[in-house]
Design a protein around this nucleic acid. Structure first.
Length: 495
DNA sequence: AAGACTGTAAACACCT
DNA sequence: CAGGTGTTTACAGTCT
C-alpha cells in the first residue's frame, strides 16, 4: 500500500465531494489583513477553480467528460454546484483591478521564474514540482504541460487558446472581440507584460500546479483502491500504462515495447496521464512507459537525465505508478545509498528503498531483489562493509564513475532536448540535489571518504527522506544549476 | 561485428 | 530446515 494512504481516503461520494483542497482556510478572508485582501481573493478564486477543474478531471478520468481540445478553462456550466462564472469573473476583477497589483507583487515577491508559493498558499505546493514555464513577451506563460492531444487547438488558423466564442478568455476579462485580429490587439494592449498580467499569470500557474498535485493524490488513491480490491492489472502485463491502469490489460507486450520510429510516444488515450508532475517527457518517455521486456533501455543514461533529478521531479509518479524507473539497478542502488546521511545501507534497507520509492518494485520481488544482489556483488563500485550487526553497502564513487560509458557527448545526448532541459547523464550526476543537504556536498570523495560503520540499523520505514529530497530539489529542477553540471563531473578525465 | 553494459535466471555457499 | 545474504556464471538484448 502506498504511503500516505492510511485512513480511509476512498472517495465515497461524488467526485467533487471527495476533493481535498490543501491549504484552504475558509476563514481566510475574515482573517486577512486589509492589505492582503487581494491574496484572499486569489486564494478563494483558486480554490473554486480547483474544485471545478478537479471535478472535470475526475470526470475525465472516468470517461464521463471529454475536454474539448484547446479549452484551457473548465466549462463552468458543467459544474452546477460550483461557483457561477460571474462570481469568478468578479473575483478576478477584484483581485486584479480593484487594487494595485504592485502591492501583491511586492508582498509575494512575485517572480515567475521562481514560482514560489506564498505562505497562505497551498501547503502542498511545497512538495510540488515547479512548472516549467516560459514567459512570453505579452505576459503569458506557456505552461510546460505536455499536451498529448494532437488535435489540440494550437496552430489552428484563426484561433487562439485565449480566444473563444468571441470573448477574451484571459482570466477575468471576458472582453468581446469580433475577430482574432481584434482579440490579438486587445491581448497586446490589455494583457501585455505588466505587473497585473504577471500576477494573473502567476495565479493561473498555481491553479495548474495545484491541479497537478491533486491529480497525483487522486492517482495514489486510485492505486490504493485497486490494490485493496485486488485489481492489480499489472500482474500479467506489468506497466503498459501507468496511471491509466484500466487500459493496460489491453496492451500487449509486443506492441507496447517500442514504436516504429523509436521515439517516445506518450499515451494517447483520453485518460492518459495528465502528468501529475509536469515532466511529461521525462516521465512519459517511451522506455518508462513501454519497457516491458527483460531488456530495457537505460533511458536516463541514454538521454542524460540525472537520476536524482528525475527522481526528484517524478518522485510521486514512480511511487504510485507501476512504472519501471528508467535507471539501471546500479544507478538506483547508488542513489539509495547516497540518499542516506551516512551513505551506507544494508541490503534490506536497499530493498526497502526500492519498494518505497517505486511502485514497480513492490512486486516480482524475487526477480529484482536478485538483480540487486547481483549488482551489488558484480560491480566493484559497491563496497560491502562489515558491521557488528551485519554488513552494509557503500558506494565507491570513484569506481562508479569509472564505469561510465565511454563518451556521452552533448551530441550523443541530443535527443534529450525532448526529455530534459539538463545535460549530463546519471553516471556523472547522481546526487546533486541531495548533496546539497549533506555535509560532503562539495563532491564525492571517491571512496576515500571514511565509511562510518553503522551503530544502528537505519530506519527503513522512514518515508520522510524522499519527500524532503523532493521538496528540496524541486526548487531547482527546472533551472540548471551550475553545481549540477560540475559537481560530479571530474570523471571525464578519469581513466 | 565486436565488445561493453545491463537484466534476468539460477546455482551454490554461508549464516542465522 | 528455511530463509536471507552474497557470489558467481550463463545467456540474451541493447547500444556504441
Amino acid at each position: 500500500m502506498a504511503a500516505g494512504t492510511s485512513g480511509c481516503a476512498i472517495p465515497c461520494e461524488a467526485p467533487a465531494a471527495g476533493l481535498e483542497i490543501t491549504g484552504f482556510d475558509s476563514s481566510l478572508l475574515s482573517r486577512q489583513p486589509l492589505g492582503n485582501k487581494q491574496l484572499a481573493f486569489q486564494q478563494q478564486l483558486l480554490q473554486m477553480q480547483q474544485l471545478q477543474q478537479q471535478h472535470l478531471l475526475n470526470l475525465q478520468r472516468q470517461g464521463l467528460v471529454s475536454l474539448p481540445p484547446g479549452q484551457g478553462s473548465v466549462p463552468l456550466q458543467t459544474l452546477p454546484q460550483a461557483v457561477c462564472p460571474s462570481d469568478l469573473q468578479q473575483l478576478w476583477k477584484e483581485v486584479t483591478a480593484a487594487q494595485p497589483v504592485e502591492d501583491s507583487i511586492k508582498q509575494e515577491g512575485l517572480d515567475l521564474t521562481t514560482n514560489t508559493s506564498n505562505s497562505t498558499s497551498f501547503s502542498a505546493a511545497k512538495v510540488s514540482p515547479p512548472i516549467s514555464h516560459h514567459p512570453l513577451p505579452n505576459g503569458q506563460s506557456t505552461m510546460h504541460t505536455p499536451r498529448r492531444d494532437s488535435s489540440s487547438h494550437e496552430e489552428t488558423p484563426g484561433s487562439h487558446p485565449l480566444y473563444g466564442h468571441g470573448e477574451c478568455k484571459w482570466p477575468g476579462c471576458e472582453t468581446l472581440c469580433e475577430d482574432l485580429g481584434q482579440f490579438v490587439k486587445h491581448l497586446n494592449t490589455e494583457h501585455a507584460l505588466d505587473d497585473r498580467s504577471t500576477a494573473q499569470c502567476r495565479v493561473q500557474m498555481q491553479v495548474v500546479q495545484q491541479l497537478e498535485i491533486q491529480l497525483a493524490k487522486e492517482s495514489e488513491r486510485l492505486q490504493a483502491m485497486m490494490a485493496h480490491l485486488h485489481m492489480r492489472p499489472s500482474e500479467p502485463k506489468p506497466f503498459s500504462q501507468p496511471l491509466n491502469l484500466v487500459s493496460s490489460a489491453t496492451l500487449s507486450k509486443s506492441t507496447s515495447d517500442t514504436f516504429p520510429d523509436g521515439l517516445p510516444h506518450p499515451p494517447t488515450s483520453a485518460t492518459a496521464p495528465i502528468t501529475p508532475l509536469r515532466q511529461g517527457p521525462s516521465v512519459i518517455s517511451s522506455s518508462t512507459l513501454h519497457n516491458v521486456g527483460p531488456i530495457r533501455r537505460r533511458n536516463s543514461e541514454k538521454f542524460c537525465t540525472p537520476i536524482s533529478s528525475e527522481l526528484a521531479q517524478n518522485h510521486e509518479f514512480y511511487k504510485n505508478a507501476d512504472v519501471r524507473p528508467p535507471f539501471t539497478y546500479a544507478s538506483l542502488i547508488r542513489q539509495a545509498i547516497l540518499e542516506t546521511p551516512d551513505r551506507q545501507l544494508t541490503l534490506n534497507e536497499i530493498y526497502n528503498w526500492f519498494t518505497r520509492m517505486f511502485a514497480y518494485f513492490r512486486r516480482n520481488t524475487a526477480t529484482w531483489k536478485n538483480a540487486v544482489r547481483h549488482n551489488l556483488s558484480l560491480h566493484k563500485c559497491f563496497v560491502r562493509v562489515e558491521n557488528v550487526k551485519g554488513a552494509v553497502w557503500t558506494v565507491d564513487e570513484h569506481e562508479y564513475q569509472k564505469r561510465r560509458p565511454p563518451k556521452m557527448t552533448g551530441t550523443a545526448c541530443c535527443p534529450l532536448w525532448l526529455l530534459s532541459p539538463r545535460g549530463g547523464d546519471d553516471w556523472t550526476k547522481g546526487m546533486r540535489t541531495k548533496g546539497d543537504q549533506l555535509p560532503e556536498a562539495e563532491g564525492f570523495p571517491p571512496c576515500s571518504h571514511p565509511v562510518h560503520v553503522k551503530e544502528e540499523p537505519a530506519e527503513a520505514e522512514d518515508d520522510s527522506r524522499p519527500v524532503s529530497l523532493m521538496a528540496t530539489t524541486n526548487q531547482n529542477v527546472t533551472i540548471p544549476d551550475d553545481r549540477d553540471l560540475e559537481e560530479e563531473l571530474p570523471v571525464e578525465d578519469l581513466s
